[in-house]
Amino acid sequence: MMEQEIKPLAADAPNVLEVSHISKSFGAVTALVDVSLKVKRGEVLALVGDNGAGKSTLIKILSGFHQPDTGKILSNGEETRFASPRDARARGIETVYQDLALIGDLSIYHNMFLGREQRKRFLGLNLLDNKKMRTLSRTYLDTLGIHIPDVNNTVDLLSGGQRQCVAVARSIYSSPSILILDEPLAALGVRESAHVLGLIQNLRRQREVSVIMIVHNYNQIFEVCDRINFLHAGEIVLDASTSETTEEELIRVVKSGLGKNAISAAASAAEGRATLPHH
Rank of each mutant, 00 (worst) to 15 (best):
E5H: 04
L9W: 05
D12W: 01
S25L: 06
A28L: 09
A31T: 12
K55M: 05
T57E: 01
I59D: 07
I59G: 07
N76L: 15
I93E: 08
T95R: 08
A101P: 01
L102P: 10
G104Q: 02
D105W: 09
S107V: 01
Y109C: 14
H110Y: 14
L114F: 15
L114A: 01
K120R: 14
K120M: 07
L123I: 11
L125N: 13
L127D: 08
N130H: 12
K131Y: 04
K131I: 10
T135R: 09
T139V: 14
D142K: 15
P149G: 00
V151E: 10
S159C: 00
A167H: 04
A169G: 08
R170S: 11
I172Y: 12
I180N: 13
E183S: 11
E183L: 10
L185P: 04
A186F: 01
A187H: 10
S193Y: 12
S193H: 08
V209E: 07
I212D: 08
C225L: 03
C225V: 06
G234C: 07
L238S: 10
D239V: 13
D239E: 01
R252T: 14
V253Q: 03
V253F: 09
A262R: 08
S264A: 14
S264F: 11
A269D: 10
A274D: 11
L276N: 03
H278G: 07
